[in-house]
Nucleic acid binder design. Sequence first.
DNA 1: TCCCCAATAT
DNA 2: AATATTGGGG
Length: 397
Amino acid sequence: MLAVEPSRGSNGDEREGAMGSLAVVEDFVDGSLFEDISFGDLFVGMDDGDVLPDLELDPAEILVEFSGAADGLYRVDGATQDVVEETEERNASHGVEVASGMVEEDPILVTATEVWSASPEGDRGRKSSAAAASMKGSQGKRKAKVDWTPELHRRFVQAVEQLGIDKAVPSRILELMGIDCLTRHNIASHLQKYRSHRKNLHARQAEAASWSQRRQMYAAGTGAKRGANPWLAPTIVLPPSPAQAFRPLHVWGHPAAAEPPLVHMRPFPPPPDPSYWHHQSQRGSREGWVAMTQGTPCLPQPMAAAGFAAPHVAGIVPHPMYRPVPPAPPMSKQQEFTSQLQLDAAHPTKESIDAAIGDVLAKPWLPLPLRLKPPSLDSVLAELQKQGVSKVPPASG
DNA sequence: TCCCCAATAT
DNA sequence: AATATTGGGG
């Protein structure tokens, strides 16, 4: 039989538990074999290349799986259940997840898996181990969830782009990604979300562009006596806050390798507040890697060859995706200012640029220096030309 | 069978 | 919240 229990010393207060150290105990009739898996040891530092999917299963489900094993080969000591959950909870509160799980097709067993497949059955060929055992009874078992880490997502996006957006179908994406423990369904599900996100993104950008246009029309209409549009209702409606629209949302909100924004809008003002990033890095630290031995089918080939190990989760390591973006090369004040201009016409007029300048100056979050010394229209025009706005026709009025 | 999408479950 | 599953249609 097999039991999963927390590895705790006699001293219940022992700190090593904080990192999620578990003992997987395999007990034979003729004797007993202990294998201690200390998760703290299994996570080894890795700055980049977070490619491995993190497969997780609810602790409750694990227990169900085991207790559902009809052949009696596996079971989980009922008494340990609470402790396991408690450990999990503690780990979560420390920002670390003890991920354990399995996939049914191509049996990649993660975490305690190695131990499982070392079971008396030597159950390699079959669907094997606890999963198989529970499969017969309850047909509809949930699969382990894949943690789409930024790096994994990046691979996904890369594959999609390599194929071309219209030829990107799950099976081919899967091929290109070369991560065997993902299933076509995993990809399909992610792809569905990806497309949907893309759609939203484009919609938002279109909307932003239209807002910018309206603002300009409105500004132009109120500014110039000539150009005033009598049919334009003088209603002031503010567009949605850019800051809101750009808050990172897991992998989806990220520029990542994906597409550059269609409309140039910088997330400005930059970091909402320090506690935001703090929160995010705590979040990020949850995403530790499941311990996987080298050469498991879960390791993408190049990395397996390079002998990569799983990353370290001791301490708070912000997930790459939540790390603040490295500072861009400094812009001159002039560039800074023109980068704030929202011009959606290919060949903006002096008037519209003037209006846009007015808009920028009206932004409450504009850095003080820029507000104190607004650049002249001419200098803005010059900067725009440098930036590639080809021709600026003279004002018509 | 595969793919897509929306709805729904976990 | 993010992912999986399901079900209907192409």
